[in-house]
Computed example of a mutant assay.
Amino acid sequence: MGKAGRFACIFLPMALTIASLICTILVFSGQTNKDMSLPRDLYFIKINAKDFTADPDTILDKIPDNIEINNDLLNALQSVAKADDIKDFYKVGLWNYCEGEINDKGDEKITHCSPRKTNFWFNPIDVWNLKDTAAQKVFDDELKNGVEVYSKIAKWVFTAYVVTICLTVAEFIVGIFAIFSRWGSLATTIVSSVQTVFIIGAAGAVTAIYVSLLGVFSAVLSHYKIKAELGGSMMAVVWLGVAFSVASGFFWLISVCCCSGKSPHKKVSVEKTPYTYERVASPYLGGQQQGHQLGNMPASGHGTTGTAYEPFRHDSRV
């Protein structure tokens, strides 16, 4: 197949590796730049408090009579809303969160993004300045398990994505050597397998914690017209990166077994068939001098000279 065929064989897994790397970078970019549309649209979870912040004093009138609410929590939320400590929406990313306002037409405008922080997790008590209020105890009772688990897993998810992006870069670099040999493909397959384990683990964990957090927020805050929703675009990118990673690992493995890169045109050595005769060179009879001697011999009855007879050597090699 040759080097050109070898390159064509690894082109697909290399392209899939690059696609997985792009998806991982996009996950990192969510909510890191409020001036760019793509990072703004990528978030794990969004908390929409527009219906509450619009008129917190009348929120009690909008709650059905058959729903029990905690007045301490409501009073605390009303206080921070009046102090403008609760924004219309919050979008949570891997590094930080962004907050902003929603106008009457429903258009969103990000006004502030928190500083980027490793092992970040969204804590509503800190964000809404609910420390040392009656609401903090309520939140501790209602959100204790969910928030604690979320905070621990969020740290692992951040580490897993850092390892994933490093392994994806390594997979791409090692994959370059796969152009030249199957050993390069084998090394790349090993790196790709480890990368796939980490990206699947990170994607599974981040999906589980934010689905759980969505349920917790909905159960506790939905009565106060504060809603939460998953970021569909971010989740699509997360699992698309997983799909690209699994596919690239499969095709790297295929390239180990196929497409050697060696040319099929080799010099063929043909052995002589045993028990055949081959002509012996003239030195066997002493060259030209021997030929002259034979030429002086009497001619046969058919008029042939001595040079018409050529000795043959019997070869019985097997």
Results as ranks from 00 to 15, higher is better:
N119I: 07
N66Y: 15
E68V: 14
W252F: 03
W183G: 14
P64A: 07
L230Y: 02
W128G: 06
T58P: 08
L38H: 08
K272A: 11
G100D: 00
P64N: 09
S316P: 12
C23D: 02
I165P: 07
L21C: 09
A83K: 15
P64S: 07
F217V: 01
I125L: 05
I179C: 15
L221Q: 00
Y277R: 09
A281T: 09
F250H: 00
K267P: 10
L94E: 07
K109E: 08
A228F: 03
N75M: 13
Y277P: 07
Y309L: 14
F172H: 07
I67G: 12
Q288I: 13
G306T: 07
Q293R: 11
V206M: 06
A243Q: 01
A208Y: 09
P124I: 02
T58R: 14
M235Y: 05
R317E: 14
W156F: 12
E229H: 04
D85S: 14
M235N: 03
C259A: 07
I200D: 04
A170W: 05
T32M: 04
D141N: 12
H314E: 11
P274H: 07
M14A: 14
I69G: 06
W239F: 05
S300E: 13
R182W: 04
L143C: 06
K225E: 03
L130F: 06
G106F: 01
K105Q: 14
S218H: 08
Y275E: 11
V270F: 14
C23N: 08
G93L: 01
L42C: 09
H265F: 11
S248N: 00
D126M: 00
G306R: 07
S269A: 10
F52G: 00
D35E: 09
V270H: 08
I25L: 12
Q288Y: 13
W95E: 02
E68F: 13
K131M: 06
I63F: 05
V127G: 02
D315G: 11
R40W: 02
T304P: 07
S255I: 01
G291H: 13
M36E: 11
A299M: 12
W252E: 00
V270R: 08
C113V: 02
M1Q: 12
R313T: 10
H302A: 12
F198V: 04
D65I: 09
D141G: 15
G5Q: 05
H265G: 06
Y97T: 03
W183D: 09
G232C: 03
V280F: 08
K144G: 15
P13G: 03
G286L: 00
F172M: 13
M1T: 14
V216K: 04
N129L: 08
G303S: 12
G301H: 13
S79G: 13
P115C: 03
I226Y: 02
F158P: 06
V149G: 14
K117C: 02
